[in-house]
Design a protein around this nucleic acid. Structure first.
Lengths: 247, 247
DNA sequence: CGAGGTAGTGTGGTCAGACCATAGGTCGAA
DNA sequence: TTCGACCTATGGTCTGACCACACTACCTCG
C-alpha cells in the first residue's frame, strides 16, 4: 500500500478514474467495476467510492443502474449537457452567476454559432439543417401551448449549435438555456401578450435561418443577438438588455 | 414518514438546498447545518447528505472545512471557476469534448471578450486594465521559465475576461484553459523553439491590448483569435487549427 | 494576576456492516 | 418447449462507530 497521502479518499478515487480515462483504459461505453470491488482495489471504503461516483454522475460522465445484467452498474457515458446544465443552474441559484451574464453568454455563443453556419453556407459547405427546419415547421402550429412552443424553441436553438459541430458550444448553450428556464421567472410575463410574442419569435427564427442560408455571417449574428436579448428584455423585465448588449 | 416518493435520497437533499438557494434562504457566506442535523431534518441518512454535499462541492458551490469554530462546516461560496474547470477537464478526459472543440470555444469566448472591451474603449467607458498591464509587464522578464510564463499568460487572459465584467464567460474561459492545460500535451512542443515562441506571444499580447485601447473591436477580435489558434497549432501539432478556425 | 498549556467539544472524513429494491439469469416443473 | 419461482449481483440507503482536526474553555503554574 503506497498510502502515504491522506486528504480526501474520494478525491483519490476520482483522480484514479480520471487518469484511467486519460490513459484510454476507460472510455465511453465501458463499465466500471462494482462499488465494492473498486473500494477494495483502491483501498478505500465503499462510501468514498460512492461519493466519487456521485461527482462523476453529476458531471455527466457516468450513468448508474441498479439490478443485474448488461445494463447494470456504472457505465462511462459522454453526456456533457446534463452536467453543464446542473452546474450552471446551481451557480445561478447560488448567485455565482448573475442572470444577465448567463443571458449575455448565451447570446455570445449563439452569435458565434450562426456566424459559423452562415460562413459555411457562404463557402458552399453548409450542413443539412433538416432537424432545424423540422422544428421550425413544428413551431408554426397554431394550437401550441406556451410550454410546448418554448420546448420546441429550445430544441431549435440546440439544433443550430449541433449543426455547427462544436459539442462544447452546444453543451454550454444547452446548459445556459436550461439554467435560465429552471429559474422559472418567465411564466407570468410570457402570458402577457403571447400571440404577439410568438408571432415575433417565428419571424425572428425565419430571419435567422434565411441569413444563415444566404451566407451572411454578420447579418445572422446580429439577428440572433437581438432575438435573444429582445426575448429576455420582453419577458423578464429586468436590466438584462443593458448587460446583454455589451457582451 | 411521508416517504412515498422515490429514488435518490441524495438528490432530494440537493433539490432542497437548491430550492433554499433560489428562495434566498441560503446565500454566499451562509453556513449549512451540520451533516448530522441536515440528515435528521431531511429524514435521510448522513451518507446521502454527504453525497449531495460532494456534488455541491465539486460544482464549486460549497466549501467544507473540518474542525470547529467560525471557519468550520459547509459554507455556501460562489466559486464557479473551480467547478467549471472540473467539469470541462473530466469531459475532455472522458472524450465527451474533443480537444479541438475546447480550443475553438475558448477562441469564441475570448474574441467576444476583447471585442466587448474594445467597444467599451471606443465608447469612452473602458475599464482600468491595471491588472492586465501588470501581468503583461511581468511577462516581459527575461528569466522566466516556460511554466511561469504560461501561468502569467493564463492570468493575463483571465484578467481580460474579468475586465469585461461577465463572470459566466470568465468562468467558462478559465475552465477551458485549465482543462486544456491539464491535458498536459504541450510540454515537449513548447520546448522546441521557446525563445521565438515567447517573443511572438509577447508581440501578440501587445497587439491585442493596443487594439482594445484603440477601440477597434474587429481588429482585437481577429488578433486574439489568431493568437489562440496559432498557439495551439504551433504547440500541439494536431488538426486543431482547422476546427478552431471555423468556429 | 497573567500566560501558557491542556482537556473538552463539535465538526467533517472515513470505514464497516447491514438491509433493501431491482433486474437479469437459472433451473425446475408443467 | 414454455413459463414461473428462485437465485444472485448490483446500486441505494441507513446506522453506528472511530479518527483527525480546530477552536473553546478552563486550569495550572509562574
Amino acid at each position: 500500500m503506497s498510502q502515504s497521502e491522506s486528504p480526501r479518499a474520494w478525491r483519490s478515487v476520482l483522480e484514479r478514474i480520471e487518469a484511467d480515462l486519460l490513459e484510454g483504459l476507460l472510455g465511453p461505453g465501458d463499465r466500471l467495476p462494482g462499488e465494492r470491488d473498486l473500494a477494495a482495489k483502491l483501498g478505500v471504503g465503499r462510501s468514498s467510492v460512492r461519493e466519487a461516483l456521485r461527482v462523476l454522475e453529476s458531471m455527466g460522465l457516468v450513468r448508474t443502474a441498479s439490478g443485474s445484467g448488461p445494463n447494470a452498474g456504472a457505465m462511462i457515458v459522454a453526456a456533457p449537457q446534463g452536467g453543464m446544465a446542473t452546474l450552471l443552474r446551481l451557480q445561478l441559484a447560488g448567485q455565482g452567476f448573475p442572470f444577465a451574464d448567463v443571458v449575455a453568454t448565451r447570446a455570445v455563443l449563439e452569435s458565434s454559432v450562426v456566424e459559423s453556419l452562415a460562413q459555411a453556407f457562404r463557402d458552399g459547405v453548409g450542413p443539412e439543417l433538416a432537424e432545424t427546419e423540422r422544428l421550425l415547421a413544428a413551431m408554426d402550429a397554431d394550437d401550441l401551448e406556451p410550454d410546448d412552443f418554448l420546448a420546441l424553441d429550445a430544441r431549435f436553438h440546440l439544433s443550430l449549435a449541433e449543426a455547427s459541430g462544436n459539442v462544447v458550444v452546444a453543451a454550454v448553450m444547452a446548459g445556459l438555456r436550461t439554467a435560465i428556464e429552471s429559474y422559472g421567472r418567465q411564466g407570468a410575463a410570457v402570458a402577457a401578450d403571447w400571440p404577439a410574442l410568438v408571432s415575433d419569435l417565428r419571424a425572428q427564427h425565419a430571419a435567422v435561418i434565411a441569413a444563415v442560408r444566404a451566407g451572411e455571417p454578420e447579418l445572422a449574428r446580429e439577428q440572433i443577438r437581438s432575438h435573444i436579448t429582445g426575448f429576455y428584455a420582453r419577458t423578464h423585465l429586468t436590466g438584462v438588455e443593458r448587460s446583454a448588449a455589451d457582451a
